[in-house]
């Protein structure tokens, strides 16, 4: 386990990512896995109780490393080729494309509210104003979704999304894959001796 941890930390540093921030972010999974670890501990399987949080932390670290170093379109393509449901991938794709646009819109609304005194008053009126802003944002997002659908129809969309498969396996990918499989395997064999 320690070897895997150092391998992942080394990869994080190699990718020039902030190690401390990544470790903290990966630790988000610990409260959840700790619950299951407690159950395992109470049932008397100490080894599993230690294994659950450690494995979940390492998995989260691995996922963060992939997400932070790979463009989302490539991740989605990889998930598609692994057989992930197409509809889920489409939702993620659209979410990724429009999340920033909606966030920008929310920022503009916040700024406009601030210019006119912000969400002033007590907690109750603040909550009311924020709820109103959220409703407007939802309305705008819905309108945008309608607009996007029209734009898709205008370019021949018939309900079936056809995508380009531009991904090509290159020599560097083969080298990476070999290393990614061989190194943990070597750790595993080494630990077994």
């Amino acid at each position: 386990m320690a070897a895997y941890f150092f391998l992942l930390c080394g990869s994080v540093l190699l990718a020039r990512l902030p190690l401390k921030a990544i470790l903290l972010r990966a630790a988000v999974v610990l409260p959840f896995s700790a619950t299951f670890a407690c159950v395992s501990l109470l049932s008397g399987t100490t080894e599993r109780a230690i294994g659950i949080p450690v494995k979940s932390f390492l998995s989260a670290l691995g996922v963060l490393l992939v997400v932070a170093t790979t463009p989302l379109p490539q991740i989605l393509k990889a998930l598609e080729s692994l057989g992930a449901p197409r509809i889920a991938l489409l939702v993620i794709q659209f979410l990724y494309r429009y999340l920033f646009v909606i966030f920008e819109q929310a920022q503009h609304m916040r700024l406009a509210a601030k210019c006119r005194g912000g969400f002033g008053g007590g907690h109750r009126s603040k909550f009311k104003a924020a709820a109103g802003a959220l409703a407007v944002l939802f309305g705008r997002s819905y309108e945008r979704a309608e607009g996007i659908h029209q734009a898709m129809l205008a370019r021949g969309f018939d309900g079936h999304l056809r995508l380009l498969s531009t991904g090509r396996i290159r020599a560097v990918d083969v080298a990476f894959l070999t290393a990614a499989v061989a190194i943990p395997l070597a750790f595993r064999i080494g630990a077994g001796r």
Binding site: P73, R162, L163
Partner: peptide, 23 residues
């Protein structure tokens, strides 16, 4: 369309422009 953000819905420019021809 008036709002380009509504028209450009794919993750990359290439994929977006190729959307119509694929259809």
């Amino acid at each position: 369309f008036q709002d380009s953000d509504e028209q450009l819905f794919m993750p990359t420019v290439l994929e977006d422009v190729a959307f119509g021809p694929l259809n």
